[in-house]
């Protein structure tokens, strides 16, 4: 394992201290339990709190600030945070309008946030993000994962909350955005969890993992490398089969890198995806290309499509001021 690190056990805290110092105008770090809040607390609005395992940076701490999150709870690398973190964060940022948890659908995240919600004596609701179409929906299983679509939920609900939406409205909007968002990814390499010290999976030179998540875990199937064009065809086929957008509908297209793939390739993927959507008669109203929901240094990328409706596009355009997204 080759990483910039002092003591693996201190990596998370040292990184959080660096994050806070580099964005001292924006962020405030609280340790033990660990959570990060806006430097300038928001006035009277629903408090948006997210969190999850670390290693997905800039998600979620890089998305704290005006127009997005009020707080985030970072767990150990790829390990969901614990209820005490969520309780402390809620205590810190709730100003009487209630707390909305935005949670990626993993057993660990769901259970920890659930226990926090049960232990809390303030109005709260939870939006579960499960945009990954690589996994089938089912009553009997954990269901689909939350991946890069989470950022989109956080952005749109963040804008609505900033504009004064109620807890119920925020929850309803979050669920709606989630139901109109679909993602799928492919990995070319694994990544190394620092505390584990070796790659989570081994993969051959001509292979890729198709339908992966964001934890360096193997995907739905392993297959031979393909030209980018064909890969994008496959990813979008799955996404569009799920969303079933009508011709002429307008979408947000998000090309998300997993960390180890250079921008030049992400833009090439965007180019390929744009051609497919054009062919399908779907308009790209907004786009986002970059490493936002990462899996440490994993090489790979995911495509996310959100089908706009009503005010969703203007919520995307609403001002945001965070470490990773700003306009």
């Amino acid at each position: 394992m080759k990483k910039f690190v002092n003591d693996v056990d201190q990596l998370l805290v040292e990184a959080l201290q660096g994050l806070q110092a580099a964005h001292s105008d924006l962020l405030e770090l609280h340790l033990d339990p660990n959570y990060v809040t806006r430097k300038q607390p928001a006035k009277k609005k629903v408090a948006l709190i997210s969190g999850g395992g670390s290693g997905h940076e800039p998600l979620h701490c890089g998305l704290i600030g005006k127009g997005m999150l009020d707080a985030a709870c970072p767990g150990q690398v790829f390990t969901s945070p614990t209820p005490d973190q969520m309780l402390a964060a809620a205590q810190a940022v709730d100003n009487g309008q209630g707390v909305l948890f935005i949670v990626k659908n993993y057993a660990g995240d769901v259970m920890n946030f659930q226990m926090a919600a049960e232990m809390m004596d303030r109005p709260c609701a939870t939006v579960l993000v499960n945009d990954d179409v690589a996994v089938e929906r089912s009553q009997h299983t954990t269901g689909r994962r939350g991946v890069a679509g989470t950022l989109i939920v956080e952005k749109l609900v963040g804008a609505a909350a900033e504009a004064g939406a109620s807890l119920e409205q925020c929850k309803a909007l979050g669920d709606r955005v989630n139901s109109r968002t679909a993602s799928m990814g492919v990995a070319l390499t694994s990544c190394t969890v620092p505390a584990a010290g070796r790659p989570t999976f081994d993969i051959g030179d001509g292979e890729m993992e198709f339908g992966v998540g964001i934890h360096g875990e193997p995907g739905r199937r392993r297959g031979p490398m393909k030209p980018a064009r064909e890969l994008v065809d496959d990813l979008l086929a799955a996404i569009l089969a799920d969303l079933k957008p009508e011709r002429g509908s307008e979408v947000l297209l998000h090309v998300n890198g997993f960390g180890g793939t250079p921008l030049v390739e992400l833009y090439l993927l965007y180019h390929c995806a744009q051609k497919v959507l054009e062919r399908e008669g779907i308009r790209i109203g907004r786009s986002l290309v970059g490493n936002y929901t990462t899996a440490l240094e994993m090489a790979g990328a995911s495509l996310t499509v959100t089908q706009f409706d009503g005010e969703m596009k203007s919520l995307w355009d609403a001002p945001v001021h965070t470490a990773a997204l700003r306009w």
Partner: peptide, 12 residues
Amino acid sequence: LLSTIGGASGPL
């Protein structure tokens, strides 16, 4: 353990 383990196994 609830505030130490995290992940799926922690709450369980």
